[in-house]
Amino acid sequence: MIVGTRKPLEEIKAMISPYKKVLIVGCGTCVAVCLAGGEKEVEVLKNELSLAMGDKVSFDGVTLERQCDKEFLEQLSDVVDQYDAFLSMACGAGVQFLSEVYPEKPVFPAVNTTFMGINRAVGWYEERCRGCGNCVLGITGGICPVTMCAKSLFNGPCGGTNKGKCEIDEEQPCAWYMIYERLEKQGRLDQIMDVIPANNWENQRPRTVIQPGYENLYNTSSK
């Protein structure tokens, strides 16, 4: 899931202070699951801002199923004219799509999109994927070197590995040490010798995915 954290109140206040009527838009998917932007967080933020800004700005709140789907965003079409600005509690994708669907309205993010990760325990999330677009988990024992290695090395470890830890921090495990251990446990240590060619770091430009089966529909091929 995409994990986000609420922005500090001061920053949000500064963004919306020029407006009179603001709609806070929650998102009922990833950010709701990670307790950053669901219905509860919308209510809390609404009350926080009301307390902080008094009568200067008025707020309403609504939570959509997802802000990364146009169909759900269009549910706002009837009320859009009532507001001067939107404050989106979705991830960066949701904020941008909301802005794209209603280009005449200023949209502000209330959440910092932090990473793609897992839910370790209630309220505790850890990063696991950087979306590099070239998944090597099959030969790295299910441990992502792009996310877990400080240098994002496709072929490691580097000279900074030290008794299982990374040179950047004694608390930080060396990803390639973990990969070695995992592969050894699974009896496929020979795979560590496979050289993974350098990524073409596609994520330097915006990507589009069209799932197989839909290629004909859009008369294109996935890039």
Partner: peptide, 8 residues
């Protein structure tokens, strides 16, 4: 309808 199965 509201539940997002976050398991909280």
């Amino acid at each position: 309808e509201k539940c997002v199965r976050c398991l909280t």
